[in-house]
Design a protein around this nucleic acid. Structure first.
Lengths: 232, 232
DNA sequence: CATAGATGTCAACAGCGTTGCGCTACGTGG
DNA sequence: CCACGTAGCGCAACGCTGTTGACATCTATG
C-alpha cells in the first residue's frame, strides 16, 4: 500500500508530458490559422484527444506547463553580463517576441501565475535588476510587480490582438484610416488634426516608450531614496 | 426599392439595441457568478436567445456596443476643470473601476477598437491631455497610444483575473505564500529574501506607480522638447 | 385591404472541454 | 514464471458555446 508513484515511463507509452507540451507549442506557433484546442492537439499527436487527460489534470494545467516552457525560451535569449537596464530591455523584447510566437498561450496566460521553475527564474531576474538599480525590501517587491504586470499585460494584449480573426483585425487596423477620419471636426478637433499621425504610430515605438518609462520609474524611485539617505 | 431604413420603433417590438445593451451590462456586472452568454442574455430579456441577432450582427458587434456604453460610464466620472495630469489620473481610475464592474466586457474588449462615439471622446480627452502637457504632432500621437494601450492592457488584465473561477484565483493568490516560499534559497536568493514583501504588494499601489510612470514619461518628453527649442 | 419587411421562436449544427467505460499491455509481487 | 493491478489509450457521450435557417406573427405602408 501507499506505493510511491513510479516515475518510470512505460515503453509502450506513446505520449508524454514533454511530447504534449511540444505539440502544444507547435500548434500555438501557427497563430490564428490553427486553434489551440484539445481535439487539434490530439490530431497533432496522432492520438485520441482525451489521451491528454492521462498526463494533465485539465487544459489549464497543460497551459501553465506550456507557458513555463515559453518562459524558458525567453530566458534563453537573454545574454549574461548585461547591466540592469539592458537586462530589463532584453527581457521585455524577448517576452514580446515569444508571446507573438505563441499567441494562443500568451493571451491566456498573461493574467496567470505558472508557479513553475522558469517563472521563478524570471522573478529572480527582475528582482535582481531592481536590486541592482538600488531598490530593496518593499520597494523592490513593488517595482517587481510593476515590471512583471506591465510586461504580462502588454504582451498578453498584443498576443490576443494577433489571435483575432483576420477580418476583425483588418477592421480595427483600418479604423484609424476610416472612422477616425470622418469624425465631426467641431467635437473632436484633436482627432481631426492628428488623424494622419495617429494612423502612423508603430506598435514597436509604443512598446519602446513603455519599457523606457518603466526603467525611468525605477531609476526615479532609486534616486529619491538615495537623496533621502544623503539628507539623513 | 432602396427604402430609407425606417428608424421608428415598432410598438410591438419587445427588444431594442438599448434594452439588449443594458441587459448585457446587468449580466456582466455579476462577474464570475454569471457567464455572459447569448443564452443567458435571452433569459435576462425574457426572450429567445437568438432574437438578439435581429439587432446585432453577432456577439462581437454587441460586445463593442456594450463596451462603448461602458466607456461612457468612465467619462461620466471625470469632472471638468482638471489639469492634464489629474485628468489622466481620473481616466485611469475610472477605467479600472468600470472594468472591474463589467469584467466580462473589459477582458474581451481590451485589445479591440469600438470605433464608436465614446471611444472618440476618450481619444480626444487623452490627446487633449498630452497636448496640454506640451506634445504635438507625431509625439502627441505616439504618447496617446502609449497611454491608451497601457490603460487598456492593464484594466483588461485585471478584469480577466477577477473573471477566473474562484479556485483558480485562490491558487494564484496563495502562490506567493506557498510555492514562492519553498523555492531553493541557493538558486533564488532574491525571492527567498523578499518573500514576505512580495506577498504584501497591493494591486492598487502597482496601478498607481504605473499611472504615475506614464505621466512622468509624458512630462519628460515634453521637457526634452522645450529644452531643444530653447537651445535653437 | 393586401403585402412586404421586421421581429421573434424553435430546432438544429458544429465546435468546445471534459468524463466514464472498456480494452490492452505492461511492470511487478508472490 | 505467472497472475494480477493498473497505467495508458480509444470511444461514445454530455453539457456548454455561438450561430443559422425555416417558420410564424405582427405592423406599417402602398
Amino acid at each position: 500500500m501507499a506505493k510511491t508513484p513510479v516515475r518510470t515511463r512505460r515503453s509502450g507509452s506513446q505520449l508524454s508530458p514533454e511530447a504534449i507540451i511540444e505539440a502544444s507549442l507547435r500548434i500555438a506557433a501557427r497563430g490564428s490559422e490553427d486553434a489551440f484546442t484539445v481535439r487539434r492537439l490530439g490530431e497533432e499527436l496522432g492520438a485520441d484527444p482525451t489521451a491528454i487527460y492521462r498526463h494533465f489534470r485539465d487544459k489549464d494545467e497543460l497551459l501553465l506547463s506550456v507557458a513555463d516552457r515559453a518562459y524558458g525560451e525567453i530566458l534563453e535569449g537573454i545574454p549574461d553580463g548585461l547591466g540592469w537596464k539592458d537586462r530589463l530591455r532584453a527581457l521585455a523584447g524577448g517576452s514580446l517576441r515569444v508571446a507573438l510566437k505563441y499567441p494562443a498561450v500568451a493571451s491566456i496566460t498573461a493574467s496567470r501565475t505558472t508557479r513553475r521553475i522558469n517563472e521563478f527564474r524570471i522573478v529572480e531576474l527582475i528582482l535582481g535588476a531592481v536590486g541592482e538599480a538600488g531598490l530593496d525590501g518593499a520597494d523592490a517587491a513593488l517595482y517587481y510587480r510593476v515590471v512583471a504586470d506591465a510586461l504580462l499585460a502588454y504582451v498578453g494584449q498584443s498576443a490576443a490582438y494577433v489571435l483575432f480573426a483576420p477580418e476583425i483585425r483588418a477592421g480595427d487596423e483600418s479604423s484609424w484610416r476610416r472612422e477616425y477620419r470622418m469624425v465631426d471636426p467641431e467635437r473632436f478637433p484633436a482627432i481631426t488634426r492628428l488623424g494622419t499621425e495617429l494612423a502612423e504610430v508603430s506598435s514597436e515605438a509604443v512598446y519602446d516608450v513603455r519599457v523606457e518609462a518603466l526603467i525611468a520609474a525605477i531609476e526615479a524611485r532609486a534616486a529619491s531614496l538615495s537623496k533621502d539617505a544623503a539628507r539623513a
